[in-house]
Design a protein around this nucleic acid. Sequence first.
RNA 1: GGCCCCAUAGUCUAGCGGUUAGGACGUCGCCCUCUCACGGCGAAAACUUGGGUUCAAGUCCCAAUGGGGUCACCA
Length: 483
Amino acid sequence: MRVRIAPSPTGDPHVGTAYIALFNYVFAKARGGKFVLRIEDTDQTRARSDSEQMIFDALRWVGLPWDEGPDVGGPFGPYRQSERSAIYREHVDILLAKGEAYRCFCTSERLEKLRALQVAGDDGHRGYDRHCRELDSSARVGEPHVVRLKMPLAGPITFRDEFRGDITRDASEIDDQVLMKSDGLPTYHLANVVDDHLMEISHVVRAEEWISSTQKHVALYQAFGWEPPQFLHMPLLRNAGGSKISKRKNPVSIYYYRDAGILPEALRNFLGTMGWSFGGDREKFTLQEMIDVFTWDHISLGGPVFDMVKLTALNEKYLHELSHDELADRVIAWRLNKPYIARLMGLAQKRMKRLTDFIPLLDYCFAGDLDLAPVLADLKIDGVAPAVLAEAIRELVEKYEARTEWSHKVLEEESKAWATAHGWKPKQAYPLIRLGLTARKETPGLFDLMEVLGKEICRRRLREAARAIDATVPTPAPAPPAA
RNA sequence: GGCCCCAUAGUCUAGCGGUUAGGACGUCGCCCUCUCACGGCGAAAACUUGGGUUCAAGUCCCAAUGGGGUCACCA
């Protein structure tokens, strides 16, 4: 029995990846199977070189090691899709030869126009119009093209979801999927199916968002003449409002939870209560205990809301159970370690008269969320409506996020451009950022500070500041019903 | 909009035809106490609606409603 997770290295390691990794890991351990990590880096435009290492580090921090993967090797390698191009090429040729796929020469302009037309008409019919499906492409193989799957034109395609039972879509609703992009790299659908087959993955445990793609995958398995694996779709982690968890509404990076003082065992445990229950009244359990009792019988399909308050409460329980010695080690590893303190010295030294000044000076460097209530009155720019300001701050956070590098230089650039764009002087705008980040009016240099505080804490505090500003606007009382 | 998935308190969940519908977080109250926190005790709070099936429905079926996902040369 073999399972896998297949994250894409396109950004910060996502808490949803940890969630799905947990269930794959526990399932594998409970059944004596193998847990594989595969990196799906076939999108050259989005893949980031440092992101892969961050995934490794984050998953190790959560405590979910893999048996096979790019860094540890294994008998089914390589485990990085960018290193498997020849394999995909070969398999596309097989489909082409079997007449199960075809070359498509449509330009992206044509496809965009088609899509625009369909959305405007909005009769529910969308997707590629199969323009090239019956084309004789033999003379044009040198031209730029993609390869598409020849989907069956009609007829039900069914797969069995182990939690939900049979799920059927009609083939006529699914257009001819691109299998190989014009850059010669495979799309997710192809790479995923080929790799799962070749790596002998027996159970695909992934998030619910993949359900509607699964019929495409099944069609591919059929085209190859392969036996599909078993599919188990976990419910999606949700924002408080119920939508799919997103960084606009929730800290979504695993590193945030680490930096905000969550213990990995607590995060694991918490994730284990999302959509799954231990049995009976038990909600606090170790990884090993989860493995010991694990079955899929206790899955609940309603999308669980990721509630930080509840996570924190669970974390508190773990914290309280630690011996003083262990707790000391955890706190030291978190922020009282030499490297972190050393980074703060440049900021603190000139502002210290005694050693005693250090901690009070930089208390916000050893904190998670700050209490902004005392400084709320100063959290403003004169003449700017709170709602506008709050939105501007969110916009700034997104500008920071768009840059992959978190450095003084980049942060200053973005902040300056942002302030200018809003017609604010740095003198007006920076104090606001400072206040949101530190709850203080006087601090060391803002961007130096942001560097050491780290991306996760900064964006959380800035978003919280925006929220606090929003909250200063009293919501108007609902109008009395007309008599 | 088409298709698909889902539905127990504000939130995470137990329940797998017969229960005073259980636990946890959060909220409120009380106790402990020099303060705060911890801890203890207690309270309020849920089966979306409508049809069936059945002696009996939160539990099975259907529909509606609501929520969500998905419809890329992204994964």
